[in-house]
């Protein structure tokens, strides 16, 4: 079951059972953006409120599997208080995490391509890479956020 425990780390299950940043924000001032995974039916509605180029608040609604819900929940906490530029950098780092196999990260002597420390608890999602069909679950909230930032720009 080691693979399974790699995928479902305790912190992921915790975010799934008690998701943070659930709710809605008034539009405007917030922007509302929807994401959808037609293959498995996962849905997310994201509310992002910017103040002077800073993500002042994030709320979300929707439903999905533990991976998509935990990823969204952690994302909300990670981006709050960050500048749009910093958030774009976080999105890039997260996407790298989803495309790099774990062996590259652990391999001694080779520089890790992804700075896991910068990801904080999001690093718990690295086990997803071993389960290619679940990557789209983890990426749903991030792709939706990216789309939201594009609309705001």
């Amino acid at each position: 079951m080691s693979n399974l425990e790699d995928l479902y780390r305790e912190i992921i299950l915790d975010h799934y059972r008690s998701p943070r940043n659930r709710g809605e924000l008034a539009v405007p001032p917030a922007t509302r953006v929807e994401g959808f995974n037609p293959l498995c039916g996962d849905e997310i509605t994201l509310y992002v409120e910017l103040e002077d180029g800073i993500v002042a608040n994030v709320k979300m609604m929707g439903h999905g599997c533990s991976i998509s819900q935990a990823s969204a929940s952690m994302m909300g906490s990670a981006v709050k208080g960050k500048s749009v530029e910093q958030v774009r950098e976080q999105i890039r780092t997260f996407k790298q995490l989803m495309t790099v196999h774990e062996s590259t990260l652990e391999h001694d002597g080779e520089p890790a391509k992804v700075d896991l420390r910068a990801l904080g608890e999001l690093a718990a999602l690295q086990g997803v890479v071993k389960f290619p069909v679940r990557i789209k679950c983890a990426a749903l909230a991030w792709n939706t956020l990216s789309q939201g930032l594009d609309e705001l720009a």
Partner: peptide, 21 residues
């Protein structure tokens, strides 16, 4: 438990089922 998570756990037992619509 979301159907995709159920199916993922079942896969570890070698159980082939279909999650989805």
């Amino acid at each position: 438990v979301h159907p995709h998570d159920v199916a993922q756990v079942l896969d570890q037992f070698g159980v082939c089922v279909r999650p989805g619509h």
